[in-house]
């Protein structure tokens, strides 16, 4: 069975999304959960590029613009998330999700 490139790209990105989902749900280490979320964001970016390359013709750089802004937002998210992890570690001396169950310092 031969597939066109566009469904293959979409299958690739959905597999990556599901891997990120499994990682975010299964692990209890906060850093690994954040990395799973990063993988899901990357899978969304793959979709933008796949539809830009194989989708209907629009203005020439639309998909690229989407991905550039999305990467910028993802970088900001990673920085804030890891700073939060360090702040939680300073309070709890632990970054397991199950033990970070109170907001009081």
């Amino acid at each position: 069975m031969s597939l066109d490139p566009l469904p293959l790209c979409l299958l690739f990105s959905s597999a990556l999304f599901c891997l990120g989902l499994i990682g975010a749900l299964a692990r209890s280490n906060t850093i690994l959960v954040l990395l799973g979320i990063e993988l899901m964001l990357n899978a969304a970016n793959l979709n933008f590029i796949a539809f830009w390359r194989y989708g209907p013709v629009t203005s020439p750089a639309t998909g690229v613009m989407f991905v550039i802004f999305s990467i910028a937002v993802a970088a900001a998210e990673a920085a804030v998330g890891l700073a939060l992890i360090i702040a939680v570690y300073r309070h709890q001396k632990n970054i397991r999700l199950q033990e970070a169950n109170r907001l009081k310092g």
Binding site: I31, I68, A78, L82, Y89
Partner: peptide
């Protein structure tokens, strides 16, 4: 897919910057 600029942005941002932040968080 022919999106060279995005590829280099990905290498710069993720492989260069986010990975360093992640490694620092792991070690801290």
């Amino acid at each position: 897919a022919g999106a060279e600029f995005v590829a280099f942005a990905q290498v710069l941002v993720y492989v260069g910057a986010v990975s360093m932040v992640v490694l620092f968080a792991v070690l801290l």
